[in-house]
Design a protein around this nucleic acid. Sequence first.
DNA 1: TCGCCGTTTTGGTCTATACCAATTTTGACG
DNA 2: CGTCAAAATTGGTATAGACCAAAACGGCGA
Lengths: 260, 260
Amino acid sequence: MFANGGFARRAETPMPSTPNRTDLVEGLHYLSMRDHVAGRIASGELKPGERLPSERRLQTDVGMARGTIREGLFQLEAEGVIYRKDRSGWYVSPPPVVYDPTRWEGFMSYVEAQGRRPATETLSKTEIPCDAALAQIFRRPVGAPMYLIRRRRYVDDRAVLVESIVVDAVTAPGLLEHSLDRSLTSVLKSHYNISVARNQVDMQPCALTREEAEALRVKSGLPGLSVVRTSYDAQGRVVEHDREFWRHDALKISVDIRVR
Amino acid sequence: MFANGGFARRAETPMPSTPNRTDLVEGLHYLSMRDHVAGRIASGELKPGERLPSERRLQTDVGMARGTIREGLFQLEAEGVIYRKDRSGWYVSPPPVVYDPTRWEGFMSYVEAQGRRPATETLSKTEIPCDAALAQIFRRPVGAPMYLIRRRRYVDDRAVLVESIVVDAVTAPGLLEHSLDRSLTSVLKSHYNISVARNQVDMQPCALTREEAEALRVKSGLPGLSVVRTSYDAQGRVVEHDREFWRHDALKISVDIRVR
DNA sequence: TCGCCGTTTTGGTCTATACCAATTTTGACG
DNA sequence: CGTCAAAATTGGTATAGACCAAAACGGCGA
């Protein structure tokens, strides 16, 4: 319980009238705090998308220091139960989207298939010269023209990922003139007759660094999931190279595999 | 910078002699702290597996409050750069293990293939009655005998995951009498002629709750990765159901897929 | 040399307070 | 009724100090 043993201090500091403390009897303060809020969510008192009481309000509700309150909130955040909007408040997380890297439908279709509302926003589209790293991936000379597309994607109006896509400009000339606010894959197929035969996907828990965090409007350093995908056509040529940064609470990966 | 504006306070509080502050000029304190330690790791001054100076030592080194120091360390922890052993200290993280859920080699072999030293420890093996959830998964009646195996697995002496495996006792009678400290799959194949034809894998960032956290000897609530795998044989029968909890910094998922 | 036990160190938890910057709300005004 | 600026609120950052429990350490004795 309390830092100083849990008994003496509780007596000397009267602790204001906090009647609803039945679930706070055992263990550490910040975990009790966690349970208190988790309970209110599980009971349906707080529903997905709804805002939690402010930290200072919770402080008086449960009678703890604000630092302890926040410790508990961070727990729930790590569990994906709540999330925060910077300086606006804490909110109850909606359920995650299920993602199957082996299925080659785009983001838009699988989000829709799950009864959610997807949206895509193109942040920028530029032509860049191929650098050393991309040269290796695409097996093209350094300096060759490439398209770089940055997009932000939403589920039910919540930004869940930012991505940077690179496509060989020689393979898909004039790509940037098409609308990129829907599936890129379908554009590549319908306008350039390019289809994907092989997919290399890497996923790793990460921290969202400044750039990604800003784009997702979350605090820098929050946990996220990095997904890097390289797509190849039937000839083994690299079609696109995509790096996605997901909110850690927005995604569930599900793969169904026939063992080779 | 400082809570109160960043300039006035810096002047009025002289800040002790801290010569090595060249990298702490810009931005927030805890991020400067982060960069300071990250720099010492990147430069090779601190190597994988090595212990960081104590928090109180860092406190005098960089001249910040301990809370701020910790904030910076939490950042690096979220990024997977450092990890902690409870009440022992902070350590530089070793590189992650690459895991391909589509490849049906066991943990032992793929860890070894990456030049690391795998180990498995069986925590418990018991026979349990099939509950409602398992009944649904295995399509077996409630109460049917099942084997429950709990294991902890290591890479280079660091515990990286705990898992709970359930196997139908009727399918593999006497399974618990075999040694389970190596690949379970090979035991199933060699002794019961069971081989896996299909694999359903779910992965999701999570928080390590008390039980898992204790088994991995980390603080409860730390981010982790939950991996749930259900394996089927050629007849579509469930062979095993496995739930793994990984340290978030120990794993990198890599999938190579031929698109269907 | 090995094992035990007290001491020191270390991270873990908690309180209290302060101020900032962004957001949200309020209210006066046109 | 809509607009816009002022005020209040909210989370974000930071300090300082305190005590606990587990881990690491050091030395003593068998």
